[in-house]
């Protein structure tokens, strides 16, 4: 294939534009069902969170709710935002700042029975840390 020198720049410009449009389309396609929404227990109670979709659950670990299964590696606890509560199950080693009464962000999915299955639990090593989304939720009340 031969491109006339005169048109070469135009071809390159069009290609660059096509690449950028392609990137945006690809990104939009990817984001459609792969972005994890931040939810609170109230959102789940209100039915705003669809089961089996990646999401992040934020709130406080309810006091007295933290239990370990007999296998020693599965923990169950309740996350509360002061209005509603969501039961959470997590298999793995919890971060050290994860305690009853402390803020937590759990990444995972909601199963059809309303149990939140966490793949990952985030806690920050910061004295003043509060998940920012959570701070908005608390401040909004």
């Amino acid at each position: 294939m031969k491109v006339k020198p005169k048109h070469q720049r135009l071809v390159l410009v069009v290609l660059a534009a096509a690449a950028m449009i392609g990137a945006v389309l690809l990104a939009m396609w990817g984001l459609q069902d792969r972005a994890a929404y931040f939810v609170t227990p109230s959102d789940i109670a209100a039915g705003k969170a669809a089961p089996d979709k990646a999401m992040r659950l934020g709130g406080m670990v309810e006091k007295g709710s933290l239990k370990r299964d007999p296998d020693g590696v599965t923990v169950r606890f309740t996350v509360s935002d002061g209005k509603s509560e969501t039961p959470v199950v997590f298999r793995g080693i919890t971060p050290d700042l994860f305690k009853e009464g402390s803020g937590v962000v759990a990444e995972g999915r909601l199963d059809p029975n309303g149990l939140f299955v966490a793949d990952n639990i985030l806690a920050k090593h910061d004295e003043r840390y509060m998940p920012p989304q959570m701070a908005n939720e608390v401040a909004a009340r």
């Binding site: 690449a19 990817g30 992040r56």
Partner: peptide, 27 residues
């Protein structure tokens, strides 16, 4: 450039989504 574009969009999308619709999400 396409890879750069999709990483850029994915990294900033949470910001954009919150600015446009108030929805909070992570990618």
């Amino acid at each position: 450039s396409v890879i750069l574009g999709v990483v850029f969009v994915g990294t900033l999308y949470p910001l954009l989504a919150e600015a446009l619709s108030g929805e909070k999400l992570s990618v």
